[in-house]
Design a protein around this nucleic acid. Structure first.
Length: 234
DNA sequence: GCGACAG
DNA sequence: ATCTTGTCGC
C-alpha cells in the first residue's frame, strides 16, 4: 500500500523528500536582493485544536522610524481547514499553501521576507523559508526558535553574538545557519538563509530588525497575528 | 533497536 | 502548534 499523499501536493512522503532534494538544488545562496523598502514577516497558527490553519503575513516599512518603531504597511490573514499533520522535515508542505494564499491577499510586494522556521538549516537544505522563497521568487530568511538539525557552540552573551550552525552534508561539514543571541539572557534564535541571500546578509537583516524582544519585529508581529494574540487578550 | 525531531 | 494564572524581574 502507498502512504497517505501530502494533500495539496498529491505526494507520498517519500516523494516529498525526493522533491525537496530537487528544489534544494534551485535555492540561491548568493545575494540577489532588490532595494529594500518593505519587509514581510510570515507565520502559521492553528485554531480549534488544529482543525483550522491560520496563515499571517505582516508587511513592515524599511527603514524604521527615528524612534526605532516599524510601521505596519499592510497585513493579511488566510484561514483554511488543516489538511496535513506535522511531520518533522516536511513542515513546508503543511504551511506553504496557506502562506501563499495569505500573500495573494496583499496589494504590495515586499522585497524580503522573514519566516518562522528554518531556511537551509534542514536535513535536505529546504526548510519552510527556502520553500516559500522559491515559490515566491523572493529573498527569504528562516528565523526559528529551536533547532532542527546541526551542531553548535553556545553563542556569546551579547545581543548580536552568534555561533555557526554546522551540519554534515554530501560535501563534508557545512555551515548552514547562525545561532544568534537576539536578546541578552534569553535562549538564542536559529537564523538561516532561505533563498537569494547568504548567511551573513541574513544575520545582518535579522539584527537590524530586532526590537526589544527575542524575535525580530517581522516574525514577532506575524506570530501575534497568526496566534490571534493581538485580540485574544482581553 | 534507540533517540531526535522547525511548527 | 495549542491548552493556560500567576509570578519573578528589569
Amino acid at each position: 500500500m502507498s502512504s497517505t499523499p501530502l494533500h495539496d501536493w498529491g505526494l507520498a512522503p517519500a516523494e516529498a523528500v525526493a522533491l525537496q532534494r530537487r528544489l534544494a538544488g534551485r535555492v540561491e545562496r548568493g545575494d540577489r536582493l532588490d532595494p529594500v523598502s518593505r519587509i514581510a514577516g510570515v507565520d502559521i497558527g492553528f485554531e480549534q485544536d488544529g482543525e483550522i490553519t491560520r496563515a499571517a503575513v505582516v508587511v513592515l516599512a524599511w527603514p524604521p522610524a527615528a524612534d526605532g518603531a516599524f510601521e505596519v504597511v499592510e497585513q493579511a490573514v488566510h484561514r483554511e481547514p488543516t489538511r496535513m499533520p506535522y511531520i518533522p522535515g516536511l513542515l513546508s508542505f503543511r504551511e506553504v499553501p496557506a502562506a501563499l494564499a495569505a500573500f495573494d491577499k496583499l496589494s504590495t510586494r515586499p522585497q524580503l521576507a522573514m519566516v518562522d522556521g528554518q531556511g537551509i538549516a534542514h536535513p535536505r537544505r529546504l526548510g519552510v523559508a527556502s520553500h516559500l522563497g522559491l515559490w515566491l521568487d523572493l529573498p527569504t530568511i528562516g528565523v526559528a526558535k529551536t533547532r532542527l538539525v546541526g551542531r553548535h557552540d553556545e553563542p556569546g552573551a551579547e545581543r548580536g553574538d552568534w555561533a555557526p550552525l554546522v551540519d554534515h552534508g554530501p560535501e563534508g561539514e557545512e555551515v548552514i545557519g547562525a545561532v544568534l543571541r537576539s536578546r541578552e539572557g534569553v535562549k538564542p534564535v536559529y537564523v538561516s538563509p532561505g533563498h537569494r541571500l547568504c548567511l551573513e546578509t541574513a544575520v545582518g537583516w535579522v539584527v537590524a530588525c530586532l526590537g526589544k524582544t527575542k524575535l525580530p519585529e517581522p516574525t514577532r508581529l506575524a506570530d501575534r497575528l497568526a496566534s490571534r494574540r493581538d485580540q485574544k487578550r482581553r
